[in-house]
């Protein structure tokens, strides 16, 4: 089983383009999408329409937009850390390099903070980097820990 990615993003264009970019970069991990902060928390907590863990397993990596309806991205991050501690990798994907956001994200325990690239090539380059670092080389710990990386790329 590949490491599951949970994308928390309300902009359907961004969801579409990121999905495309993952495909283009040859990253075949399964992807779940939560399109607002409430959904994201439901998913992580396994409640509401995400209560079936067989269908919606805990993600290995969360790609988290900050500006979200219902529950704000930073509040999602805070709740995730309360629920799952540091075992879940959370990479913030924001549209801005606003310093207050960056500082707050790291204070709340984000693993990384990335600024959404404006063009598609940049997006492909970025998801490749995410895959290489967080899914391939980086070692996590906790419930979702997986075997050491193999030479053939995406796990």
């Amino acid at each position: 089983m590949t490491k599951l990615i949970l994308l928390v993003e309300d902009d359907e264009n961004d969801v579409f383009l990121l999905t495309r970019a993952l495909k283009k970069a040859g990253i075949e991990n399964s992807l779940q999408v939560a399109d607002d902060g409430r959904q994201a928390l439901d998913y992580v907590e396994g409640c509401g329409r995400f209560s079936n863990r067989a269908e919606f397993p805990l993600p290995y990596l969360v790609l988290l937009d900050l500006k979200l309806p219902q529950v704000k991205g930073l509040d999602v991050l805070k709740r995730i850390r309360e629920l799952a501690g540091r075992s879940l990798i959370v990479v913030v994907l924001s549209a801005s390099s606003n310093e207050t956001d960056i500082a707050e994200a790291y204070r709340l325990g984000a693993n990384a903070y990335l600024c959404k690239p404006a063009n598609f090539e940049g997006l492909v380059e970025m998801v490749r980097a995410i895959n290489d670092f967080w899914l391939k080389f980086n070692l996590s710990y906790g419930v979702n820990n997986s075997p050491a990386p193999t030479a053939d790329g995406a796990l």
């Binding site: 902009d11 264009n13 383009l17 549209a95 063009n119 598609f120 997006l123």
Partner: peptide, 18 residues
Amino acid sequence: IAHDMRAPLRAMQGFSHI
């Protein structure tokens, strides 16, 4: 500006690329 105005731009650039 950073958040809301750049989002449609990303879509324009992304979809024209595709």
